[in-house]
């Protein structure tokens, strides 16, 4: 769906994007992550043809943008980080304009449908100048959905939203993906990325450092699973028995909690429970804690850790 090859952008002496090779498959939700100033927005602008690359190629839907400009633009929906609206229009007029622009069929019905999805239907006759930041963000989403694009490029789609709004947008993202749409999402809310994305690409200082599905990415960073057990009737025999197991790397009891570290190749919670029970312990709670995306992101970007092979593929 999206493919870049050697994509580079220089502004004078500054290299904003350096030899970027990203690949987004059809029907997936791709998270595009990076610290501030990493080059995410510049990359998105180049994908949309609004910044000319210094070098490299871009293909959208397998086609070159310059050769198929209008056809491609009609199939993309873009939500920018900040919403720029015509404040003297109402929501209905605003979406009506874009419905004309994209030649949407049954525009009246479609407008009501998208406004309903973002919970703004009862505000459609109000002037946009009176909308809050969150409402503007949701209206932007409505605009993106209006022409039913095949590819949605969303830059911070959940910023400025309250928890209800965040959930609404998440639901929309999942619904669209279930319809077969491809989503390219750039966001700093990593918990949401973790919940929604199939694959992520991590960029820092203009370079792509990692591009992989979440599980594999985390496995590359951390090779242990930490299981925290709250139990009754602890004895030292439990810890020593656990440590004898081949998949256990350590078992430490501290502050009424038993922390067991295992390898990442399987889920060993059942075996651990059985060992504890065999020594008379009673498991009150057991939580498997794997490395979060946030932790992985911080490690990768702080250490400038490239998880890509020389050919730019995930290792």
């Amino acid at each position: 769906m999206i493919q870049t090859e050697g994509l580079t952008k220089k502004f004078g002496g500054l290299t904003a994007v350096d030899d970027l090779n990203i690949h987004v498959e059809k029907g997936e939700i791709y998270g595009f992550l990076g610290p501030n100033g990493a080059g995410k927005t510049t990359t998105i602008m180049m994908l949309l043809g609004m910044e000319r690359p210094t070098a490299g190629k871009i293909k959208l839907f397998g086609k070159d943008l310059a050769q198929n400009y209008f056809e491609i633009k009609r199939r993309i929906g873009v939500l920018s980080e900040f919403q720029f609206l015509y404040e003297d229009m109402t929501a209905k007029e605003y979406l009506g304009f874009f419905a004309d622009f994209y030649e949407v069929e049954n525009p009246e019905r479609k407008i009501d449908e998208v406004l309903s999805r973002v919970d703004l239907l009862d505000r459609k006759h109000e002037l946009l100048g009176g909308y809050s930041k969150g409402m503007k963000q949701k209206l932007g989403m409505a605009r993106v959905l209006l022409h039913d694009p095949d590819l949605l490029i969303l830059d911070e789609p959940q910023s400025s939203l309250d928890p209800y709004g965040i959930r609404e947008i998440r639901d929309i993202i999942m619904e669209e993906n279930q319809k077969g749409k491809t989503l390219f999402i750039s966001s700093h809310i990593l918990s949401e990325i973790e919940r929604t994305c199939h694959r992520v690409g991590i960029i820092s200082n203009g370079k792509l450092l990692a591009e992989d599905d979440l599980t594999h990415l985390k496995h590359q960073i951390a090779n242990e699973m930490e299981i925290s057990v709250e139990l009754e009737g602890y004895s030292d025999a439990i810890a020593s028995s656990l440590e004898e197991l081949e998949f256990v790397t350590s078992a430490v009891y501290e502050d009424s909690r038993l922390t067991v570290k295992t390898t990442m190749d399987d889920d060993y919670r059942a075996q651990i429970s059985r060992v504890i029970a065999s020594h008379g312990g009673i498991v009150l709670s057991m939580v498997a804690k794997e490395i979060s995306l946030e932790e992985a992101f911080v490690i990768i970007t702080e250490q400038n850790l490239s998880l890509l092979t020389k050919e730019g593929q995930a290792s």
Binding site: T90, D122, R123, K124, H125, E126, L127
Partner: peptide, 8 residues
């Protein structure tokens, strides 16, 4: 516009 926003 006022009528429309009121009826909405």
């Amino acid at each position: 516009r006022v009528v429309k926003s009121v009826t909405a």
